[in-house]
Write a protein that binds this DNA or RNA. Structure first.
Lengths: 332, 332
DNA sequence: CTGAAAGCGCTTACAG
DNA sequence: CTGAAAGCGCTTACAG
């Protein structure tokens, strides 16, 4: 059997209560006793049983994570692994552990969340995406269970979240293209059930607007999925109407399809992607892309949540992570 | 306060013991009582407290995972996320949870393993890589703690592991190249502290040997890291000696560097990679690569471990996952 | 088939 | 500053 607090107490000639207090470094224990206890722990190679502590403390110092498996581009887009890394780094600092689950569909996602919540396995949950009418968010709110969302939720009751300023990112980007002399700037975006898709489109529209260019709806395509094929088709569609001099996309995969179309037709069009995936620098030409700093998103999500769990809430319940435009040949 | 087994017992007019037995669906409980208890659980919306169960059962139904963070190509190579997905899928089936940690160096890795072991947080551990003189493996062995390794360990005491047949993979590949008429086949591999590097080199040598080609040591380069730069330099080195008609590499990133060198010099050389990363199909030309089926590796690792934990050991303590050669333009 | 009791290994309010 | 005792919410050998 493993050595317990009782064994330590016996050897140190104190009560288990005292040992417990030494471990948690709590209250007023004399240095003398502390040292005896430390020595005993050392000698017996004692390690606290985390599970027993969890039960007594009604807390696990563990965060739950749901990874949406449906994401086709889970492997091509390093977003999730980067975010997880950021989460992990902050959590480790604060001695929190992480538990995760892949979900293959929204129903699974909800049931994993429920399981996390009522089994008492985790102290808080990090949602890696925010959807319109997000069932998990609704449920967690209803249960008043601590959680944070990566991605600004549609409906911010009193929710903690972290996100980029997606509006600003495309606004800035489009401005830059206009400065370079582009007039006809097309936009290929994602499904509007994702709020970042909406925000990015808005940023684009605003920039066009403020620069007194005319907004040409035929230059805007909203796709269902982030695939090269969709990018390719969207580009084909747009070009039937008019050959733009720049194309802004909201995902690198879309941009890859666009580049392919452009190569085939030997057009000279500036193209930008989003997410700065590793693939982008290998494109022909290398793709300019907006880096969304996924690791920072994860890091700050963990930070907001853990601070909340420790009762040290930040003055604001959300955090904006800056994006960075990585310029490569495709906008030269 | 959350509802406990006692509340259910009270409502159902039975003892807590009985409720507990109904939950675990154990022993002989009459259907009548079962139904009363189920009804009570339903009414109170009772959910067992997992932590309390863990403590009483001395088991958490949780697996621990260490993700080596040092891997430069964590994002470019989807190995880890794919393996995690495989692990997760099998675990979910068996109602096991997963806990993970990123480690930034081997010392961290060991200390996370220790923490997993002695805190009783997890029932078993999955190591995502096997190194020569692997400290974690030694420690886990010493502690007789259940674990499985992805990657055949150098020193197989009585260790559970899953791996590809790396020898076979390159052997087969080189044979194929020879059949296509290649004579001077170069090899660019990784550091020999990884056993898969060794195995792949052996497979290459054997194929050359059996086909009665002469093994030219100057056509073999072992690099320290899997980077395009290393691939590029290695290729440069090799070409000083002789222009080969094919190059076998043990990682896609190496192959990317090789392709770059070849493009620059406009050589006509067949090239193969390893891991079939998403990047490979975007290369110019698209890269032929060996898919190592990382998800299957993870799945079977979890399977071996969980079966072991449940006392249903497989007759063999390891499992070989087949590779698949994905042929693209680079070997046309 | 079911219950009372002890136990899993901690923590902590209470008392001294 | 320290201890005895009760408690966290389950499980299970023992007894009936």
């Amino acid at each position: 059997m493993a050595v317990t607090i009782k064994d330590v107490a016996r050897l140190a000639n104190v009560s288990p209560s005292t040992v417990s207090r030494v471990i948690s470094n709590s209250s007023r224990i004399s240095d003398a006793t502390k040292n005896v206890v430390y020595a005993a722990m050392e000698e017996l190679n004692y390690k606290p049983n985390a599970i027993a502590r969890n039960l007594a403390n009604a807390s696990t110092k563990t965060l739950g994570l749901i990874i949406p498996n449906k994401e086709e581009n889970l492997f091509k887009n390093p977003f999730f692994i980067q975010a997880m890394r950021g989460i992990s780094i902050y959590s480790q600092k604060k001695n929190y552990k992480i538990m995760f689950n892949y979900s293959s569909n929204p129903e699974d996602e909800l049931s994993f969340v429920r399981e996390f919540v009522h089994s008492k396995w985790v102290d808080g949950i990090i949602l890696l995406t925010a959807n319109e009418d997000d069932l998990c968010i609704d449920y967690l709110n209803e249960q008043a269970f601590p959680f944070v969302v990566i991605g600004r939720p549609f409906n911010l009751h009193d929710i903690m979240w972290v996100d980029n300023d997606n509006f600003q990112a495309t606004y800035h980007l489009v401005n830059k293209l206009i400065q370079k002399g582009c007039q006809d700037i097309a936009f290929i975006g994602g499904p509007s059930r994702r709020i970042f898709s909406k925000d990015r489109l808005e940023g684009y529209k605003r920039a066009i607007d403020l620069r007194n260019l005319t907004l040409d709806e035929a230059l805007i395509v909203e796709t269902n999925d982030f695939t090269d094929e969709n990018g390719y088709q969207a580009m084909k569609e747009i070009c039937k109407h008019k050959i733009p001099d720049a194309v802004v996309t909201t995902d690198d995969l879309l941009a890859f399809g666009v580049l392919k179309y452009i190569r085939e037709h030997d057009y000279k069009i500036k193209v930008t992607g989003f997410n700065n995936t590793p693939l982008s620098e290998y494109q022909m030409p290398a793709l300019t892309s907006v880096d969304i700093k996924a690791e920072d998103l994860g890091y700050n999500a963990a930070k907001l949540l853990i601070r909340h769990l420790e009762g040290r809430d930040s003055p604001v319940n959300h955090f904006i992570v800056g994006t960075e435009l990585i310029e490569r040949q495709s906008t030269k």
